[in-house]
Design a binder for these strands. Sequence first.
DNA 1: TTGTACGCGTTATCAT
DNA 2: ATGATAACGCGTACAA
Lengths: 339, 339
Amino acid sequence: MSIKKVAQLAGVSTATVSRYLNNPEQVKERTRLKVQSAIDETGYAPNTLARNFRRGRTSLIVVVLPTVGDPFLENVMRGIWRVADEQGYSILIRDTQSNSHEFDEYTDMVFSKQADGILLLASISPFEEPTGKPRASNKVHPPIVLGLESVTAELNQFPSVRVDNVAAAADGTHYLIQLGHQRIGFIAGKRNSLLTHDREKGYRKAMRKAKLPVASGWVVEGEQTLEGARRATRRLLSHKERPTAIFCANDEMALGAIHEIKNAGLKVPEDISVIGFDDIRYAEIMDPPLTTIAQPAEEIGERTMRRLCQAIEGSDGDSEAEIVPHKLIVRKSTANAPR
Amino acid sequence: MSIKKVAQLAGVSTATVSRYLNNPEQVKERTRLKVQSAIDETGYAPNTLARNFRRGRTSLIVVVLPTVGDPFLENVMRGIWRVADEQGYSILIRDTQSNSHEFDEYTDMVFSKQADGILLLASISPFEEPTGKPRASNKVHPPIVLGLESVTAELNQFPSVRVDNVAAAADGTHYLIQLGHQRIGFIAGKRNSLLTHDREKGYRKAMRKAKLPVASGWVVEGEQTLEGARRATRRLLSHKERPTAIFCANDEMALGAIHEIKNAGLKVPEDISVIGFDDIRYAEIMDPPLTTIAQPAEEIGERTMRRLCQAIEGSDGDSEAEIVPHKLIVRKSTANAPR
DNA sequence: TTGTACGCGTTATCAT
DNA sequence: ATGATAACGCGTACAA
């Protein structure tokens, strides 16, 4: 009963107050002043709840990501926020704690009007199939855009923005091969992450192309964490055919790998070269500075968000994947193969 | 018109459907089944917008923080999320991009019902005074809890949870002094950050107590970034009375400092000791591993969130600050003073 | 240019 | 245990 009070105080109708708020140009100067002073006096703030309800939209976007505090995602978020601010959306962040969740868990947020759209930056691979009862077919698919990751079969109907992870990883691997490395290990992410799986695919592809073998035990799981990568590295170091170079599916793991290699009394890059993926800000200050593959994080954020806005407005063109360019950044953690 | 459809299809009233949804125990088994099958058939999902509107609450909490992708805040967020999930709140994250904002900008979110409460983890120092017109006094102060930071005069009416930054920084400084350091530099955060200002206070306090001088130029601004810390470090290194130890107001800056010191051809800790604050996960894998002061991040998150829930429910007890314990973690970036 | 009046989907109150 | 209905605060079609 708030707009009413203002109206009463200003001696106008609620409709006029509403118009003053939303289409000021439709109300006469003199009236405007009256309304404004009534608003000032009461300290009135429009009830967003009622407004959203009436308008049928929340102006809320849910961004689903594996972990906050990922320095790479920070940059992506920056791009997302820029567009969100510009378009009047607020960002709701859902951390999946690196677990995979049911697809419905997120889409329901749209169907129940908790949010207008969803930005999926998470590991989405094994979205468990909807439990039992099939989702009612009278529901159209909600506004969803995928960022960073490739998509599973069930998700390829949605637009996505990402680098070509296969090609990028192949490039990185190729670079190591050019340096003369023949025994190259790979530290993968979690089993359910399509993204790191694609990078592994790129690695294998480049190895195959160079006619180099991938010995059993050269590809290990690093769990996308510092600690997981350290464990993985230890396994690699004790391999009977120890690699002279290690490709890590992301920088976080590369940092862990470098640390562990040095701990073992070996030198990077003299004994073992290490290459990462993402170019997070810590890559450069590592000792040695990390060679890595950079993604245009902020741009990815911007573009996913823009596509989502389009999808919400229904002006959703095609659902093709947008591929953005990656770039190899050579620093000091890679060198010619030893001997 | 959706609950209506379900009601119609199930041959009951909307009230019954609503009850089934919110207080299932109040509806008879037989009716429950009818309603459930109607829901299944229609794929009905309650409109959260309408529900929130009716109930007068959003179940949304806004967390205001300086930058996402801060590895320390990640841990705080983890604690916040745990409580939020448990209490049925969703978390809206606002990144201030390390700038300070007007206080109203956030409180308005509560007054306009965009959110039920606010968790302030950001640099809040110079909340510019409300512009001109004083905020209408008929507004009670909204549910706000402060985390990590101390408070300005205008904010000390709100509960807060944090470590004793002054004491903690004094402890760290004292540790360096014990190691025989006499020339100790300090890399501060941004000028408007009360938090790092408190840490600087602790540093100065410990120096004073040990009767050690703080030469002009020994306290430099590091902007809370890797890059800013590197610049600050360069200035410290070129000081005519170069410090033999550097206290950094947080780990992020400590990492930058170590990198820059090594870049300059000096050794940590042989030539210069470095100590940080926060104990982020990268502290341990740095070369050398970083000595730092740890905060119970997750616990801080949990406790701030719990207090906020209380504040929202109105069972807000006192607004005293909760102080949680800090802890010095000695690793390899500190050693006895040279010579 | 402004006012009247209805409806958005839900929950809650009061009967039954 | 269930049904009828008022109310939440706002936006807007329509009338004036």
